[in-house]
């Protein structure tokens, strides 16, 4: 079923009637609007005038537009850029490390001639079955590994995900022909070379889709920051957004410029609602831009390795 995602469909034999098609189209147009509308709302509010928002509420058609919110955030750009940097670093480094480690684990347990593959598969599966829970995990990371306030604490927790390893294993087993491995071995190739030159190139689809899921996990994570980061330095963009929503004070007390603005204009009122939404727009931005590119791979890859091999 895997390669069939889309292209090979013959419509002739099973086309539905035009009215039915129109009805479906209308339905999906409405649903598409439902999907986009909230994002649009956030975007528009971020460009609205604060007073207008406070009086009329969030609206797609504000009476007055301005850039005050972004102006305000611009004063604080160092923090935002740093958070971006942390998010990008953790996502890229984490995804690469994670893919490498998981593939290296999946390969041996996909080899039928490897005696202990059952044992090591089980070591992986057991992590899905039984979860030690938050508190022991937290104590492990802080009291023994001393990883609080470090980017490693944002990265290591998601490095190995058993489900992905099993997906890779299934893919390796089914899509890398044993004969190919055998002949390579006869040619004197070592396991590392076989892995790098035969297995990996043949497994790009599964690597791509698992890689994308890892990327998404890392980029969208805020929980590890909430658990492990106490300073205001090592926080990623998601957590910064969370804090901005929770507590606007977070923006103002960290904004060095806020004090300066106040000093010049004592009657200054922070455009809190719009700043909040501007913060969201800044956080949403990259995902929306990267999205069209991602989702094509994603949809392709999704069906490749997952449940059915």
């Amino acid at each position: 079923m895997s390669e069939l995602t889309g292209k090979r469909k013959a419509y002739s034999s099973s086309e539905i009637s035009k009215p039915a098609d129109a009805a479906i189209n209308v339905f999906f147009i409405i649903y598409t609007i439902i999907c986009i509308f909230p994002l649009l709302l956030v975007l528009v509010v971020s460009f609205s005038d604060e007073k207008t928002v406070l009086v009329n509420g969030y609206s797609l058609f504000p009476d007055k537009l301005n850039l005050a919110a972004y102006d305000f955030l611009l004063n604080d750009w160092v923090n935002v850029v740093r958070s971006y940097g942390i998010s990008i670093f953790v996502t890229v480094a984490g995804t690469l490390a994670s893919l490498a480690m998981m593939a290296l684990y999946a390969y041996p347990i996909s080899r039928r001639d490897f005696k202990h593959r059952g044992v090591f598969s089980f070591v992986m599966v057991f992590t899905i079955l039984y979860n030690a829970g938050l508190v022991p995990f937290y104590i492990m990371y802080t009291q023994y590994l001393h990883l609080q306030n470090s980017v490693l604490a944002l990265m290591i927790p998601y490095l190995i995900q058993a489900f992905f390893v099993l997906v890779m294993r299934t893919f390796f087993t089914n899509s890398v022909p044993t004969e190919l491995l055998e002949s390579a071995k006869i040619d004197g190739a070592g396991e590392w070379r076989i892995f790098a030159q035969i297995v990996l190139p043949l497994s790009l689809p599964v690597l791509a889709s698992v890689g994308l899921l890892c990327t998404l996990n890392y980029w969208n994570d805020w929980f590890m920051s909430m658990l492990f980061v106490n300073d205001n330095v090592h926080i990623n963009i998601q957590y910064r957004m969370y804090k901005a929503l929770q507590d606007l004070q977070y923006l103002s007390s960290n904004s060095t410029a806020y004090a300066a603005i106040l000093a010049q204009n004592p009657n200054f009122q922070m455009p809190s609602e719009t700043v909040r939404m501007a913060m969201a727009v800044i956080g949403i931005g990259p995902i929306v831009f990267a999205y069209p590119f991602f989702q094509r791979f994603f949809i392709k890859g999704l069906t490749v390795g997952a449940v059915k091999g």
Binding site: L248, Q249, S252, S253, F268, Q269, M270
Partner: peptide
Amino acid sequence: TTVGPQDAMKKGD
């Protein structure tokens, strides 16, 4: 809300 009264006052509204 998690904004403290003092901070709310600081916001000016």
